[in-house]
Amino acid sequence: MKKTQKIDSQTVIRFIMDHMLVVILIALAIITAMVEPKFLKVSNLTNIMRQFGALSFVALGLTFAIICGFIDLSIPGMLNICAVMSVILVNPLGQVGALIMTLIFGLFAGFLNGALITRSGGTTQAEGLFITFGMSQVWSAAAMLISDGKTQQLRWCDRPYTIFKFMGSYNVFGVIPIAMVLFVAVMLILNFYHKRTYSGRCMSLAGGNKTAANLAGIHVNVTIMRTLAIGGMMTAMGALMLVSRVTNASPTVGLGYDNDAILSVVVGGTSLAGGKGNVLGTMLGVLLVTLLSNCMNLLGVSNHMQYVMKGAVLIFAIWADNRKNLHSN
C-alpha cells in the first residue's frame, strides 16, 4: 500500500515536472490578475500577443538549430541587418521586393552559418557557438555600414509601406494581431516539417548523435545547413515583424534577442544537448518570456529585477531538463 502511495506521489511530481512551464504560466497569470485585475483586459491580452511578434519567430528558428545541436548566436547581428535592410530596400525595390529580399537574405545568412560550420569542420556545439557569434559581429557591422549608424524610419520611405503597417497593427476580429496569426501558421508548418518529414526528423537525429546519424546514412552536413538556413529565414521574419511593429529599424535592434530566444527555447523543453525538442514547447516558452515582462511591468517590478527573474527561470529550466534526463536514463 505504502509502495503504491510512493509511486503515486512520484507520478504527480513527474507530471508537474513535465508540465512545469504550464504550471508556471498559470501561476504567473493568476498572481498578476489578483494583484492587477487589468491584466485580464482584452487590450492587454492583445498587447501580449503583439509583443509575441519578433521573439516568437526568432525562437522558432533557434529551436531547430538547438535540436540540431547548435546554439545560433548570430541572431542579434542578423536581426540588425535584416531589419535595417528591409527599410532601406523599400525605396529601390518597393515593399514587396523589400520583404522578399529580406527573407531571402535571412535564408542565405543562415545557410552561410551552416556552410561555415560544416566546411570548417567545427561541428561541435562550442565551435558552432563561436562561428555564429563571429557572424553576428559581421552582420552587426554590416548593418552599421548600410544604415550609416542611424535608425531607419519607415516614414522616410518615398514609396508605400502598407504591408508593414498591416503586419504591425492589423487585428483579426479586432482582437488577434495578424502577427500572431502568421506565427501560428508558420509554427504549424514547421511542426509538421519537423515531425512528419524525413528531413525534419534528420534534424533530431543529427542533433542527438552526429556519428550515429552519419552511419545511418543521413547527410549530416546538409542537415546542418538546411536547419540553420531555416533558422536564418525565421530570424529575418522576426526582423520584419519587429520593423512592422515599431515602424523603424535601428542597426542595434537585435541586442538581447539571443538571450530571450535561448530562454524561450530552453524553457520550452528543447534540450541544449540537442536531439530533443519541439516548436510547440517553444511557443509556451515565448509566452512565458513575454508574460514575465508584461506581468512585471504591470506589477511595477524594476527592470533589474526582471533580469533576475529571467535568469532564475533559465537556470531552473536547465536544472529541470537535466533532472528529467537523469530520470529517463
Binding site: 487589468k38 487590450s43 498587447n47 503583439r50 519578433a54 511593429r245 523603424n248 535601428s250 542595434t252 511591468n297
Partner: peptide
C-alpha cells in the same frame, strides 16, 4: 529599457496604457 530600443519602449508604454 534593457537597451536603447524602440520596441522595448513600446512594450513598456503598452503595459502602462493597460495599467
Amino acid at each position: 529599457t534593457e537597451h536603447w530600443a524602440s520596441d522595448e519602449a513600446q512594450a513598456i508604454a503598452e503595459d502602462f496604457v493597460t495599467k
